[in-house]
Amino acid sequence: MKCKALRFGKGFRVAFDARRAQAAEMVIAPGDSEGGPDNRHRGADQWLYVVAGTGLAIVEDRRKALKAGSLLVIERGERHEIRNTGRTLLKTLNFYHPPAFDADGELLSPGRS
C-alpha cells in the first residue's frame, strides 16, 4: 500500500506509481497552460480530474471546458494542452496508465514503465 498527502503546489509533480499506473498532481496559474500542440504521451493514457478551478482542454483540436469535478481521458498519442481560463489556480489530479513520467517528472519513452 502507498499513501501520500497531496500539496497541489504550482507545477507538475509525480505523487507515486505502482507497477501499472501512476498518480501526479498538476497546478496551473491563471492564464498559463501545460502541454501544447506537440504534447502527447505516446505510451500512456492520461485520466485528468479537476479538483479546483476552471480551464480548457484542447485534445486533437477539440475543445472541452473544465471545472471542478470534470473528468477527462486523454488517450495515448493524442496531442493535448490544458489551459487555466479562470482567476484562481487550476488544480488537477492525473493518473497515467501505464506510468508516463520518471520520479523527476521527465517523460518516459513509449513502452517504458
Rank of each mutant, 00 (worst) to 15 (best):
F12S: 04
W47H: 09
N94F: 02
R79I: 05
R13E: 13
R76S: 13
R42N: 01
S109C: 09
W47L: 15
S109D: 14
A52Y: 02
R20G: 10
G77Q: 09
G31Y: 15
G105S: 04
D102A: 11
A24F: 06
K2I: 01
L90I: 09
P37A: 14
Q46F: 05
Y96E: 04
A29I: 14
P98Y: 07
G77Y: 12
A21D: 00
P30E: 08
A21H: 00
M26A: 12
D61S: 11
V59Q: 08
K2C: 00
V14L: 00
V73I: 13
H80D: 05
M1S: 10
L89D: 15
D45R: 04
I58A: 00
V50Q: 12
R79D: 03
D32S: 11
L93G: 02
V14F: 00
R40N: 10
A18R: 02
V50R: 10
T92V: 15
E75R: 15
R40W: 04
E78F: 06
Y96P: 04
N94R: 13
V14E: 01
Y96V: 07
H41Y: 12
S33T: 05
Y49A: 10
L93I: 03
E75T: 05
L6E: 06
D38N: 13
E75G: 12
Q22M: 01
A65V: 06
R63K: 15
A52D: 08
E106V: 07
T85F: 05
K2M: 04
A65Y: 09
A68L: 06
L107N: 05
A29F: 08
T88P: 02
I74T: 11
F95N: 01
R40I: 02
Q46K: 11
C3G: 03
R83S: 09
K4C: 01
A52C: 07
G35T: 07
A44H: 09
V27A: 03
R40S: 13
A18K: 02
H97Y: 15
L66A: 12
G36S: 13
L48K: 04
D102G: 12
F12T: 00
T92N: 14
H41V: 08
